[in-house]
Design a protein around this nucleic acid. Sequence first.
DNA 1: CGGCTGATTCGCT
DNA 2: GCGAATCAGCCGC
Length: 202
Amino acid sequence: MKQLKSDFFQQDDVLQIAQDLIGMELVSRVGGEYCSGIIIETEAYRHYGDKACHSHAGKRTPRNESMYMEGGIAYVYLCYGIHHLFNIVCNRSGKADAVLIRALMPLEGKEVMQQRLGGMKKRKDHELCNGPGKLSKALGINRTFDRHLLDAIDADLFILDSKRMEVAPLVARPRIGIDYAEEDAFLPWRWYPKGSKYISKP
DNA sequence: CGGCTGATTCGCT
DNA sequence: GCGAATCAGCCGC
């Protein structure tokens, strides 16, 4: 089991990277607490041919500037003014692709996740990281992690090439919440293992 | 500057 | 199933 390095994220095909990430382990160290989970659900966003992508047609804003940096850094942005959504920048500098992590199967730090989410008394495992905003909250990921290099040796947020999880065949479905992307809203660029109970809500 | 929308989630009806 | 929470980006005045 080893930390995923930038050359993995700098491959040219973000659709393939999004699929290959499923089954790997995302780890955070925040406030001295380790939390981790197996990546279960991902979505790919590509800088060309994808109107849903924040960098579509070369769009640049202060918010998405990190997308234009090298593959292997985090792109964390605020959605609906409330939720921090965690993406991994892919491809080479200037080819602003990203993979959104939408759900995890929690492994370590479940008590801490429960605490950070607050609310109801006791959440089942599959209710701790089943959504992009939720998993960020559970793992303590916020905008201070934007531009964070995931392959740094002392990274507080990184990915392990975990073989602990035998993953079922992947299902491809349209992405969530991007109706504004017109015909590209139908692209089946969201993946998860068939039958998984850890995916985000339908 | 006001108004609208969004890669969402939670709680109440 | 609906509305609120509440910020960045964009468009029109």
